[in-house]
Design a protein around this nucleic acid. Structure first.
Lengths: 228, 228
DNA sequence: CGTTTACTTGAATGCTCTCAACCAGCGTGG
DNA sequence: CCACGCTGGTTGAGAGCATTCAAGTAAACG
């Protein structure tokens, strides 16, 4: 067979295309657009757990975890492809190398979770927001979605607030603070980091947790050709 | 060979036995005691990322992530065993089933991270602390370290504060609050959950993310006998 | 004993949230 | 074409939450 992926699909903006409690039979790769893993509390509050960009597996973990402990929502229109779990199982039986890369990809997700935990628990609100911008900048640049220090971030402040565990108002003021420090500019969907070094210091950002070796791209590459 | 584990060691209380930046050549299993993954900021603040109990792999992810993005500190005296990464590699080459179980174990770590993210971002301080108590209660009961609704938690409030992303004083008041609601009692190291249902509701706790199938124990079991 | 560590409490400060209002841009229907 | 309603961004104000500083208590230890 030519590819591990079994199909492709468009997801409209704002659709929660994977739901908490689901038992997916396939794992989903984000081909384009932005998505977020999301968890809701019984009081209606929402917390995002990761923001996904082009090239990310959004629920590779469901292959072994079976039941989704969170949903995945399309923050923009998204294009996705998917790999049946059966195929993943076959990969783990026959291709140890690729298996380790898939495993690694989920480990990087966990490393991102850990940085977020530090942001939520111990960073100031400016540093918290700044850290996310650093993370997104690096991840987007790896997949060729940046232009110098600029990138498109088609996400509302309400969504960003859910990604940072704060209220919209407070998030807005944090952005204002970063602007006033001359660290960033933000017009519509266009974000520009005006002072990378300054932002990195403010946010205590160290990119090494992201493993810039283009893991996900390599992954998609390996699963595409007739190697499987 | 008889076992994937290549040795055993005692770690004294309070020792950070794995450090951020390390490149471990082996992964560590906690045989007894409590440990915490820990990250420090340049301003000196500390954030714990998980609390580990008997039976947990504390740095299985270092097998593929190579470089530790956080340290691991012994909260009590600990007994550990370790598996060389070489051995893990061999396992991934020859034992797909065991490989998936190891992978799963790291996925459960990530699921715990996600619950903590929700706690930090969107739960009240009482619910945040309550949620950790629920989590620890379940995890300890799985490894036979509970007695009814009681368990030993030999961890200071300062450490608990680092695990919840709050100040000691505030953590202390949250515990006081839980006590006053009649949900728990806490004398020295003895914690008792007086009203499990009430605590679960307050904390919005759903244990399914922990995968109670005793994953880690099964794992240790499989790696012990002469199957490898 | 005297010292140390951990827990507890009070008080003041500062951070963050909610509520509320206002503005700008955009699409729609009259 | 324009008025209208909608969504998203921005700001002010007050209330409530969480932090820090400081002090006091209690148990553990040499």
């Amino acid at each position: 067979m030519a590819s591990a992926f079994s199909g492709t699909r468009e997801i409209p903006h704002d659709r929660e295309f994977i739901r908490e409690g689901d038992l997916p039979q396939a794992s989903t790769l984000l081909l384009s657009g932005f998505a977020a893993r999301s968890k809701e509390l019984s009081n209606g509050k929402r917390q995002f757990l990761t923001i996904h960009v082009k090239g990310d597996f959004v629920d590779l973990h469901s292959f072994l975890l079976k039941k989704m402990d969170h949903g995945v929502v399309a923050l923009t229109r998204c294009r996705i492809a998917w790999v049946p779990h059966e195929k993943l199982k076959e990969i783990t039986e026959r291709f140890p190398n690729l298996t380790r890369q898939l495993w690694l990809s989920t480990l990087i997700d966990a490393a991102i979770h850990r940085e977020w935990l530090v942001s939520f628990g111990r960073r100031s609100s400016l540093a918290n927001v700044g850290h996310l911008l650093c993370e997104l900048y690096i991840r987007l640049s790896v997949v060729g979605e940046t232009d110098g220090f600029q990138f498109r971030l088609p996400i509302t402040q309400g969504e960003l607030a859910d990604a940072r565990g704060m209220s919209v108002v407070h998030l807005n003021r944090a952005i204002k603070g970063l602007r006033e420090l001359g660290l960033i500019s933000w017009l519509g969907e266009k974000v520009e980091i005006k002072d990378w070094q300054g932002l990195v210091e403010l946010a205590d950002f160290d990119a090494s947790y992201l493993r810039l070796e283009r893991v996900n791209e390599d992954l998609a590459e390996q699963m595409k050709p007739s190697s499987i």
